[in-house]
Design a protein around this nucleic acid. Structure first.
Length: 701
RNA sequence: GCCGCUGUAGCUCAGUGGUAGAGCGCACCCUUGGUAAGGGUGAGGUCGUGGGUUCAAGUCCCACUAGCGGCUCCA
């Protein structure tokens, strides 16, 4: 700063619009003090012109300033404050780890939404284990107790680099070089690098860091080292392997405990946990990794969802088809799936004669692989996608422009070789059934067809009450060559997707690099209970496959024209969708989806006969009902039914039997709703199911 | 695929080198009870698989396998 600037008046505008004037540079802390000592004490950082900064950062010119405190005015945790705290805790953890494991080299330690991590390179003979967490936390506790100030200092880039090189950490040198490059400066001249000492520079631990941080370690009220993972330097799997240590931190122990408690509760909602409890699906080691066995209860949910979507498809003029699970390699060579994606498919199946002939000539595995790639021998592939089959159906008869669009739909099961570490319950599997369809249309129809597809997705999400999703428009990555097709078509398709997405009335993000190799797409993405994102529905425009398969239709000019394809799957896959849906409802499905819709609970054996008659009438009405004639007391029967999250219980005793009534108890309600005539209950429930209502609404008149 | 953790009864889990346990569920018996667990008896286990150390291994070591968390990947 120049002396002139230092002496001039500085106007600081606060969030309420008020302006404070200062004679010369001040810090955010001083501004806070000038407002009130309590604010100064509560302050953990500042936002200067919208940028997070240290409380001690000098303010040398007019600016907008907000003091960041632990809690917002509304009393909620302030995300900015947590960001500062967690970034600071990452430093504390790194210091603790370096005390415990000498020679551990720091790489990169950013805050996250729920905590922070630090990527660290450990000596090969001293990897970090979970057993080290206790010692790390103990060291961290000491540092927190010492309440050391985070102190920033700067060096110009040449000096800074020299210092880092002297310290021998190639990772920190790399970080500095990247920071210099990112600054846009030509070379290192004039660029400043910053360090933060946890305490006094030169005396205490320090780290090359852009900051900002909370004022001191004493602000860290609750923290925990959470987990270990392996990661790659710069995210590049051919580069150095690093150990990523995850942790989290809060301003108070209470907040930490609440967070850990929430994590526990989320686990109870996990589809893998509920899937077991409610016996919805099973994965068996002997069957194979990532292959879902749909048990009877889960099969009901899936079947009802399929029936739902099939009804919608009928309304929208789709035609249903069936295709086999395997097809000739030749088909997938034409489509481009083989061999370009060979690594993510199950290996090909080879015909018996070919195999025998190859064995006779002593063919090695490597040679076999080459022959398959080259097309010297044929084989069959478990299908990784349904589209080539649907294309062949389209191509099996000539089409006039008057027939277009042709919409072919199938619940088609596909198989993909996902990496073992990726598999995850029902949400990431190796065999799954897409609610797939391929629309063959004229270029003019693309826009309207896209809209039709999106409306389908909206109907599904609306019926199921899923509001918490985001829409992603996947565009090609300009730097990548993995895409096929000509740029003009890509431009057209991308524009069509963008236009269609706009009509959704939901915010969407455009993401370069997220396109399929054959075209851009619109994806619907939801989060699971632990915050991981999963893509569900997808709509993809494809100018490529019609080209590869030389598809055509006859236009009004009596000449062949190239159709455009749209791939779409509103659920995505039945497996992933059901997995997400289980978590969405926490297993408490609406009546129409519930595997068991009503359980009849006789109060004692004396009412079993009447209960059986009630059951028979429910079943006759097409309701999925069961009866519990065990010799438990009704309290126990209710508990068991509640644990299975059954929508309705029909409690029947002598009083009900006499009047032809049932005492209905709805899920989530602590008492019965009163006795009602059986016929009323049946009618009410039938309507609720038929309308696919999201809420339980049957009650006595 | 990579790093860490985990694998004991159908489910949830205890068991730290010396005779395999609990709760729930299941079967049977008693109880016939009106809204979230009545009581009893019993069956059920090559402790993920294969090696090793040891007089002795569910327990310690190695390899493999599967699951979990993350990384990378995802047509």
């Amino acid at each position: 700063m120049s002396p002139a600037a230092a002496s001039s008046t500085i106007r600081v505008t606060l969030p309420d619009g008020s302006v404070k004037e200062f004679d010369g540079p001040v810090t955010a802390y001083q501004v806070a003090e000038s407002i009130g000592s309590r604010l100064a004490k509560a302050a953990v950082g500042a936002k200067i012109d919208g940028e997070l900064a240290d409380l001690q950062a000098p303010i040398t010119q007019d600016c907008k300033l907000a003091i960041v405190t632990e809690k917002t005015r509304e009393g909620n945790a302030d995300p900015d404050a947590l960001y500062l705290l967690r970034h600071s805790t990452a430093h504390v953890m790194a210091e603790a780890i370096q005390r415990i494991v000498p020679g551990a080299q720091l790489v990169y330690g950013p805050p996250l939404d729920t905590g922070f991590y630090y990527d660290i390179r450990f000596p090969d003979d001293r990897p970090l284990k979970e057993g080290d967490f206790e010692a790390i936390e103990a060291e961290m506790a000491k540092i927190v107790k010492e309440d050391r100030r985070f102190t920033r200092y700067e060096l110009d880039a040449p000096k800074g680099l020299e210092k880092l090189k002297g310290e021998g950490s190639k990772y920190k040198v790399d970080n500095a070089e990247r920071a210099i490059a990112a600054s846009g400066a030509n070379g290192a001249e004039g660029v400043m690098l910053s360090w933060y000492a946890t305490g006094e520079p030169g005396k205490n631990w320090e780290d090359l860091c852009r900051g900002p941080h909370v004022p001191s370690t004493g602000r860290i009220g609750g923290f925990k080292v959470m987990s270990l993972a392996s990661s790659y330097w710069h995210g590049d799997e051919t580069s150095d392997r690093l150990t990523r240590v995850y942790g989290t931190a809060f301003f108070s122990k209470k907040d930490l405990d609440e967070y850990l408690d929430r994590l526990e509760q989320a686990k109870a909602r996990d589809h893998r946990v509920i899937g077991k409890q409610l016996r919805l699906f099973h994965i068996d080691e002997t069957v194979g990794q990532g292959l879902i066995l749909w048990t009877p209860n889960g099969a009901v949910v899936r079947k009802e969802l399929q029936r739902f979507i099939s009804e919608e498809l009928n309304k929208q003029g789709y035609l249903e088809v069936f295709t086999p699970n395997i097809g000739r390699l030749e088909l997938f060579r034409t489509s481009g799936h083989f061999p370009y994606y060979a690594d993510s498919q199950y290996p090909p199946v080879i015909e018996r004669e070919s195999l025998a002939a190859l064995a006779a000539e002593g063919c090695s595995c490597a040679q076999l692989s080459n022959k398959l790639s080259a097309g010297d021998i044929d084989g069959y592939l478990l299908k990784p996608m349904n589209c080539p089959f649907h294309i062949k159906i389209f191509d099996s008869a000539p089409h006039s422009y008057r027939d277009m669009p042709v919409r072919l739909a199938e619940f088609g099961t596909v198989y993909r070789w996902e990496q073992s570490g990726e598999l995850n319950g029902m949400t990431r599997v190796r065999g799954f059934t897409q609610d797939d369809a391929h629309l063959f249309c004229t270029p003019e129809q693309v826009q309207a067809e896209l809209l039709g597809c999106l409306s389908l997705v909206k109907i599904i999400f609306g019926t199921l009450g899923m509001k918490d999703y985001r829409v992603r428009v996947g565009l090609r990555d300009p730097d990548s060559s993995k895409y096929v097709g000509n740029p003009e078509n890509w431009d057209k398709a991308e524009a069509a997707c963008r236009e269609a997405a706009k009509t959704l009335g939901v915010a969407f993000s455009e993401e370069p690099g997220e396109a399929a190799f054959y075209g851009p797409k619109i994806d619907f993405v939801v989060k699971d209970v632990i915050g991981r994102e999963w893509q569900l529905g997808t709509v993809q425009v494809d100018y490529n496959l019609p080209e590869r398969f030389d598809l055509s239709y006859i236009g009004p000019d009596n000449k062949p024209h190239r159709p455009v394809m749209i791939h779409r799957a509103p659920f995505g896959s039945m497996e992933r969708f059901c997995g997400v849906l289980i978590e969405h409802f926490a297993g408490a499905f609406p009546s129409w989806l519930s595997p068991e819709q009503v359980r009849v609970l006789p109060i004692s054996e004396k009412t079993n006969d009447y209960a059986e008659r009630v059951l028979a009438q429910l079943k006759a009405a097409g309701i999925r009902a069961t009866i519990d004639t065990g010799n438990d007391r009704v309290q126990a029967k209710i508990k068991h039914a509640a644990e299975m999250k059954i929508p309705y219980m029909a409690v029947v005793g002598p009083r009900d039997a006499e009047e032809g009534k049932v005492s209905v108890r709805a899920r989530g309600v602590q008492h019965d709703l009163g006795a009602m005539p059986l016929a009323d209950f049946v009618d009410g429930l039938k309507a609720e199911i038929a309308e696919r209502r999201a809420e339980l609404g049957v009650k006595p008149a």
